[in-house]
Amino acid sequence: MKSLLAFVFCAALLFNAGCSKAPEPAGGGSGKKLTVALMPKSKGNAYFVSCKQGADEAAKELGLDLLFDGPTEPDPAKQNEIIENWITLGVDVIAVACENSEGISTALRKARKKGVKVVTFDSDAAADAREFFVNQATPEGIGYTLMDEAARLTGEEGEFAIISATLTAANMNAWRKHIEARLAEKYPKLKLVATKPSDDLKDKAQSEATALLSAYPNLKLLMAICSPAVPGCAEAVKQAGKAGTVKVMGLGLPGENRRYVKEDVTQSVVLWKTVDLGYLTIHAANAVGNGVLKPGDTRYAAGRLGELEIQGSDILLGKPFIFNKANIDEFDF
């Protein structure tokens, strides 16, 4: 009996050793079963809830264990605590949307030091605190998509105006730069007549839009490039009785624009598919954990999303998605 036990024990040990030393199989998707921990900025946010849908889909597809946790209240210390708990728990990969880049990088560096792989998505940490950043949209992608959609809606001619958040915001200016570059390059008959700030407030956007509507009677389109400004512009156009004559489009969340899209006040809302963002994040996390995806790679095939581009250490989700009357009901965030 004793020898049998000893045999079983030895066999188990050998088996264990064999498992841990076995070389990782080459090629994607067939590595060992990983535990991937996914953290949103906050758990209740509809945006991240829909990211999780995609994450669940990918986890099922890849057969990995997915942990999902995050702060319920805005406390920067909470994200760090959860990361530290995950390190102790022995997860293989951590994927996180960083509320505060600097603060969380401390915890992420610690994770990497302990052999846990780190991927960020939605908003990045310091570059040395993670292996890859799943980038949902580049300024170029956003700028070009917005301009192309505006051109499509106006038939590539006429006057249009932009409502921004503030005229100094770095991300807004990066987008504007690409919008204007695209305009100069491809649409000579379209004319940008004004760019107005809205301070990221819906009311301010609405009053600016109202002013623009009376100042430029030939205006064909309002482009709002910060999310509160999209419904703000729509409200202004609706109240001026110009729904349909002056088109409204912009960068925003489908949820807060659904009403206006259905009333034909707003024609298009540009954003990325959050479900795909979650899906890609888990695919990338899995590939990094299995050693399939390594620094220096320039392309990555992520399941149903196909072959995607990698710029530096940014995995690009691709072109933004356009929500309109035909598809907006499929998205609940």
Binding site: E73, D75, P76
Partner: peptide, 13 residues
């Protein structure tokens, strides 16, 4: 020292 950052919302709650 624990978080490596100081921000105005430290210690909320």
């Amino acid at each position: 020292a624990r978080l490596g950052q100081a921000k105005a919302d430290a210690g909320t709650g």
